[in-house]
Design a protein around this nucleic acid. Structure first.
Lengths: 227, 227
DNA sequence: CCGTCTATTTATAACTC
DNA sequence: TGAGTTATAAATAGACG
């Protein structure tokens, strides 16, 4: 797909290899994202750069998918995803924020691409926003619940809340990161939308639609894996 | 890349979605294979079909990569290489790469698979351990935070709350399942493994690893349609 | 339900700044 | 060193058998 065909053998030049790795990793993640979006499936990718740094992509996250995979046996053919909850069918896997900004008609191939990316950013922002909102609400509920039970919870409810806390903490971290970036360098971000969308430099990702990016384990102060 | 541009939205038609999934999964794995080859890197992909069947690709194998990822640091070489085929009759895998085009659930009775499953159990234990640690920390933080604030607020959006809760409930369910199975299934696994290893009957399995992939036009079609 | 076959859309190798 | 551009190689949506 480039100026010329390339042999399918290891690129000998370290520099070129690194470049190839970066570009192809980006492409691969993008493909994975598309697959996840188009087919509404769970997927996880883990890859170690030539330098040994871990990069990962996952929808809805790496760990859930890996866990499900390793835990073979609990999976059945229910035709779709996981347990559906009472309300809000489709749950967080909904993906219908079109936000078409696309200028109709005579757009050059380039601007189309840009618009596409900007749409992606908007979608992500929206998703993060929703997550943040859900976060606050859920936190409130968790607190209330804990208070109501006077500190003595059943084992199960403890599990739920612990998981909840973990998840909430993580989501909050993401949201905060994203917002900081948005507030601080909105313009910059627009200019380099490609980066935000396609690379894992931004640890803020992780929308339910596109999955989470980044090589970080879920933990704060996640470093940015760079090569 | 087809006759027409495709919207990045979930394909609504089940049939088309399945077709798209198959094609794109193939393409994705191929890309992964190229990346691994060109850059000599470790990579693993796990994806569940729309029907919930697991497919995976890994170089040098899924579990080594996942293990390395989960262990970040304290594991370099499992010491225990990839499970070796008793006799690699017929299919020759390229290098030591794993390529599963077949849902893990089908073909059975192969010592290799059992060894993999045993490894899987180990991984699960590790995974769970990790989660446990994460939970502890998260809980501690959450509690401290809650104690410090003592107030709750922000009822921004009710509609999205379900997202968060669904996620929490789902995560809890998985953890519980995992735990239940860890105790109950390990023995079963070991037993089966022993039996099969002794009879060493293996073979014949439709395990499609080894098919000509990287560049080969033709491939064994093993993916079951019925997801 | 599948393997093939194009017409098109995408990805990207090499280049440029 | 890293982002952006362009010429080509690839991937793939639909059509067919």
């Amino acid at each position: 797909m480039g100026r010329r065909k390339i042999e399918m053998k290891m690129v000998t030049d370290r520099s070129c290899r690194q470049v190839t790795f970066s570009k192809r990793r980006t492409g691969l993640f993008k493909k994975a994202n598309e697959l996840a979006t188009l087919c509404a499936v769970q997927i996880a990718i883990i890859v170690f750069s030539p330098g040994g740094k871990p990069f990962s992509f996952g929808n809805p996250g790496v760990e859930p998918v890996v866990g499900r995979f390793l835990n073979r046996g609990d999976e059945h053919h229910d035709g779709q995803q996981r347990p559906r909850l009472p309300r809000d069918s489709g749950g967080r896997r909904r993906r219908n924020q079109e936000l078409k900004l696309e200028p109709s008609g005579s757009a050059t191939g380039r601007s189309e691409r840009l618009v596409e990316e900007l749409n992606g950013i908007q979608r992500r922002i929206q998703l993060e926003k929703k997550r943040g909102e859900a976060l606050e609400k859920a936190v409130a509920r968790a607190k209330a619940s804990a208070a109501a039970e006077g500190g003595s919870n059943s084992l199960i409810s403890i599990s739920v809340e612990e998981m909840g806390m973990e998840e909430l903490v993580e989501m909050r971290r993401r949201l905060v990161d994203l917002r900081e970036q948005l507030d601080g360098r909105a313009v910059e971000m627009e200019a380099s939308s490609t980066l935000l969308l396609l690379s894992n430099k931004s640890e803020a990702a992780g929308d339910s639609r596109g999955g989470s990016w980044g090589g970080g384990r879920r933990r704060r102060s996640v470093a940015k894996w760079r090569d």
